[in-house]
């Protein structure tokens, strides 16, 4: 039995209104649906949500948008959830659109102890507005600041009892990055195996990053 194993309710017990929450997944592939359900049940609101996209109205981060739990969203794409666009245009929710590669590096920087990163992406576009531009060897880069969060809610395929994680196929995406960049990291997993059952070489996220493990209650991905 893993010391990190919690029910969804226990894992998110300390989550407060106004928390900043990173949520893994790419168009709901690799999204922790059980933990999203728990946020809905728990009733926390005014969240700042950081994720690749806002899923679909009935799936993934989309459910939090529809239930108006986010006051601010940082994402690279919101086109698959018309409700996000509606709330953005109506001024109900603040939506910050970020190039996907920049978002990935901002999260990585947040977990790696860096202040930010320099990227050529967005130079000459509206993405550069309000940002510092730095010229290196004659080429312009934007300074994009690191991102950190109170919670990272991630989805992995398998954990061992230490919290070491492996992912499946395209469900990896932002999950291993977010696992490094938050105070409390909750990993929703399909399966927990005894210590020693995962080969050290196959582990993608070392267990030291994982605060709690939660078993997925939504139908498994396999």
């Amino acid at each position: 039995m893993s010391k990190k194993l919690r029910t969804p309710e226990e894992a998110l017990r300390e989550m407060q209104n106004g928390a900043t929450v990173m949520i893994g997944g790419f168009l709901v592939v690799g999204t922790p649906e059980t933990l999203i359900e728990e946020i809905l049940k728990k009733g926390v609101t005014d969240l700042t949500v950081i994720g690749n996209d806002t899923g679909f109205p009935e799936r993934g981060i989309g459910k939090l948008i529809v239930a108006k739990r986010a006051k601010k969203v940082l994402a690279s794409h919101v086109g698959t959830n018309p409700e996000t666009g509606r709330q953005m245009h109506a001024g109900e929710t603040e939506v910050v659109l970020i190039p996907q590669g920049t978002l990935a590096e901002q999260v990585r920087a947040g977990g790696a102890g860096l202040g930010g990163i320099l990227t050529p992406t967005g130079v000459g576009t509206i993405v550069e507005e309000g940002k510092q531009k730095i010229e290196i060897n004659g080429k312009e880069f934007l300074l994009e600041l690191a991102l950190q969060a109170d919670y990272a809610l991630i989805k992995a395929h398998k954990a061992d009892e230490k919290g070491n994680l492996v992912y499946r196929r395209a469900a990896r995406n932002f999950n291993p990055l977010m696992a490094t960049a938050a105070k409390i990291v909750v990993a929703e997993v399909d399966e927990i195996v005894p210590i020693g059952k995962l080969d050290p070489d196959e582990i993608v996220t070392p267990g030291l990053f994982v605060t709690y493990l939660v078993k997925r209650e939504a139908p498994c991905d396999e």
């Binding site: 592939v29 590669g101 990935a104 990585r108």
Partner: peptide, 30 residues
Amino acid sequence: PNVTNAGSQPVTILPGGACFDSAMSFVIIR
């Protein structure tokens, strides 16, 4: 369900393919 393209359509990964996280994906791209 874990193998889709960036538009959320089901696809396959051919033998010899490789999976990675979003930072590596954009190391390749950028």
